[in-house]
Amino acid sequence: MHNNLQNRLTRRRFIGTAASLVAGVTAAPSLIAAPNIIRRYNKPDSLINDVQIGVITYSFRSMPDQSAEATLQYVVDSGISAIELMGDPAEAFAGKPENPVDRRSFYQLYRKERDGEALTEEEQKELADMRAQMEAYNQEVADWRQQVSMDKFSQMKKMYNDAGVTIYGFKPNAFGKDNTNEEISYGMRAAQALGASHVTLEHPSDDAHTQRLGKLARKHKMYVAYHGHTQETPTFWDTALDQSKYNAMNLDLGHYVAAGNPDPLELINAKHDRIMSMHVKDRQTPEHGQANLAWGEGDTPITEVLQTMRDQKYSFPATVELEYEIPESSNAVQEVARCLEYCRKALV
């Protein structure tokens, strides 16, 4: 499987790069762009003027195959060279038991309930049944995590690195309040085996838990970056950051704007040294409806933030998180590539 994937990646990169090279030579009277072409030859390259553009694999959730191999192909085809990896592709690659619950259906109902929308009686029953199945499944996974070897995670790191993709963040469902210390330690060890500098999770809004995670992070020398949605504020992360130097931020730029906060550049400049990675999307302010829109159509100052990262030499990656509606004529890979091109235009 690994060799076949590498052969497919090599063929696709050669064909794509050759076509780009021919197009570039035909369209331009000189080869001023040649160094950039050579730099990206045979590998994806989304490091633009020292700003690393990455992608979270959640962006490809609409694609049919969610395996580690297919996910890698999506990343490479979009032109991205660094990722925040969700747990499922990596853990499935390592042999995690298969989930009997349709996660998409589960999370649709879960988010509907979380957001205060009324569930029908049938939906309530369906959600309760899925929660019961998930509880049993989570125990099965916890038992698997107790004994799984890190060898497959190291193998996956090599497979991704060989294709030109580095893994900077890892987000398995292993860091919640209901997870044991053993599961949390497993998640951090797996992140290390994958080559990640940090793990990410939704901020638990629980000071005792962020302190617990900070202590385990110090033990494993692995940063824990907390993600937020529209509950983000300029002080949202302060308690966790004060608890441990290994507690950090996974800022979501779009959600921060949609929450009605002041200029995000003020927050980024003040706390850039505690940001491990930043999700990027284009959302509207509350006054304009908070919608997720195609990049350049919302109120999020993506260009200004990227240029500040470039000019101030901030080292954290900017992570494409595709959440706007994908046009019928397109797909997630094409839209992530479009987001990357938006970043490239902002940074060159």
Results as ranks from 00 to 15, higher is better:
M1N: 14
R11V: 11
T17Q: 02
A18K: 00
S20D: 00
A28S: 15
I38F: 13
R40I: 07
R40W: 02
Y41G: 00
N42P: 04
D50N: 15
V51P: 13
Q52A: 10
Q52R: 14
I56G: 04
T57N: 04
F60L: 08
M63A: 09
A68R: 04
L72A: 13
Q73S: 09
Q73F: 05
Y74P: 11
S78D: 09
I83M: 07
A90C: 14
R103A: 15
S105W: 01
S105D: 10
L109H: 05
K112R: 15
D115K: 13
G116I: 14
E117L: 14
E117T: 10
E123S: 08
E123Q: 14
E123F: 05
Q124S: 14
K125Q: 13
E126G: 05
A136D: 14
A136M: 13
Y137C: 02
Q139R: 11
E140F: 00
E140W: 01
D151G: 02
K152C: 08
K157A: 12
K158C: 10
N161P: 05
A163T: 09
I167F: 04
F175C: 08
K177L: 13
I184G: 01
Y186I: 02
M188T: 01
A190M: 10
Q192T: 11
Q192P: 00
A193I: 06
A196N: 03
A196W: 03
H198W: 01
L201S: 06
E202W: 13
H203N: 07
H209C: 08
L213I: 12
L213S: 03
K215E: 14
L216E: 04
R218I: 01
K219Q: 08
H220Y: 11
H220D: 10
Y223N: 11
V224P: 07
G228S: 02
T230P: 00
T233V: 02
D238H: 11
Q243T: 05
N247I: 10
M249R: 08
D252A: 05
G254Q: 05
V257G: 02
A258D: 12
G260V: 12
P262W: 09
P262F: 03
P264C: 02
P264T: 01
E266I: 12
D282Y: 02
D282N: 04
T285W: 01
E287V: 01
A291L: 12
N292M: 11
N292T: 08
L293F: 06
E297F: 07
G298E: 02
T300G: 11
L306D: 00
R310L: 10
Y314I: 04
E323Y: 10
E325P: 09
I326F: 07
E335T: 13
V336M: 06
V336D: 04
E341M: 06
C343W: 02
A346M: 06
A346R: 06
